[in-house]
């Protein structure tokens, strides 16, 4: 029996549909890594992760499929876009945003267009180690820069710990803001390591590197990524797990009458 089939028999509690199996195959998750993965994830959420993963797997072929050049561009510019450790020379209309170049020319549709005006964070990518908004970045300005999108986070079929934590903690509902949230959260890990301050940091003068961020700090620092589904609590929890190893699952209960009264009179 093939390792794969054996596994399917073993975990019949996770009755996978054909589609789901195809997704897992495409992700290259077999045997024990598939088992580990499934333990972390409810299969219902597989599609969300897979959509971006697929793009990554198909990156090379997708890029070939899209037209190299459009004819007679007004104000054409040439730029070598270095995305997820691959370089692609592009000829573009000078008006092209990095977001549109990624999505429309490189087929990297993991990065999302929410507002296209800097107001939501869905288009967040990491440029030279810093989180940026790709919708307000002109592709023309990206020559020589190292761009990382959500498709570039997994390494050797292993999700980035932040991706794993988002899955584990259900840090999403519809998933639209998720690629931006994850890129933003990963960049924030570095900012905390470097001891960067935020508006809610109590003392700007004595701040040291290697910060452990409080919940208030995390919320302030992640405020550039709006989640229309309101998955904020779980996003904070996911971030905490990777950032400080705090993997406590949040619990909730109905407010008591006493607590309700207190809130009303506050």
């Amino acid at each position: 029996m093939k390792e794969d089939d054996k596994f399917k028999e073993e975990v019949n509690l996770d009755k996978l549909s054909d589609d789901e199996n195809i997704i897992l195959d495409a992700m290259g998750l077999n045997g024990s890594s598939r088992r580990k993965f499934l333990k972390q994830v409810s299969t219902a959420s597989l599609g969300i992760y897979a959509s971006s993963f697929f793009t990554s797997e198909l990156f090379a072929s997708t890029m070939k499929d899209l037209p190299e050049n459009t004819t007679a561009l007004l104000n054409e510019i040439k730029v070598n876009l270095r995305v997820n450790e691959m370089v692609k020379p592009l000829t573009l209309d000078s008006r092209t945003s990095l977001l549109d170049a990624l999505r429309e020319r490189l087929g990297l549709t993991g990065t999302k267009k929410g507002c296209d005006h800097g107001q939501c964070g869905a288009c967040t990518v990491i440029i030279d180690g810093k989180r940026n908004l790709s919708c307000l970045t002109l592709a023309a300005t990206c020559e020589g820069k190292e761009i990382t999108t959500v498709e570039g986070l997994a390494k050797n079929s292993e999700m980035h710990p932040m991706q794993q934590a988002f899955l584990k903690h259900d840090g999403f509902q519809c998933g639209y803001c998720t690629p931006g949230q994850i890129c933003s959260a990963i960049a924030l890990l570095e900012e905390a390591k470097n001891g960067e301050a935020s508006y809610v940091t109590e003392d700007l003068k004595t701040i040291k590197s290697g910060l452990t961020l409080s919940e208030e700090e995390i919320r302030e620092r992640m405020s550039g990524n709006i989640c229309r589904c309101g998955a904020y609590n779980n996003i904070v929890q996911a971030f905490k797990e990777v950032h400080s190893g705090d993997n406590e699952m949040p619990t909730w209960e109905f407010a008591t009458q006493e607590q309700m009264n207190k809130a009303k009179n506050a």
Binding site: G118, S184, E191, T201
Partner: peptide, 19 residues
């Protein structure tokens, strides 16, 4: 100039301040 830092950090978001 912590007053300047504080004002600048109150603006927009980490992404926008990076840009």
């Amino acid at each position: 100039y912590p007053l300047l830092s504080m004002a600048m950090l109150s603006a927009a978001t980490a992404q926008i301040r990076n840009m």
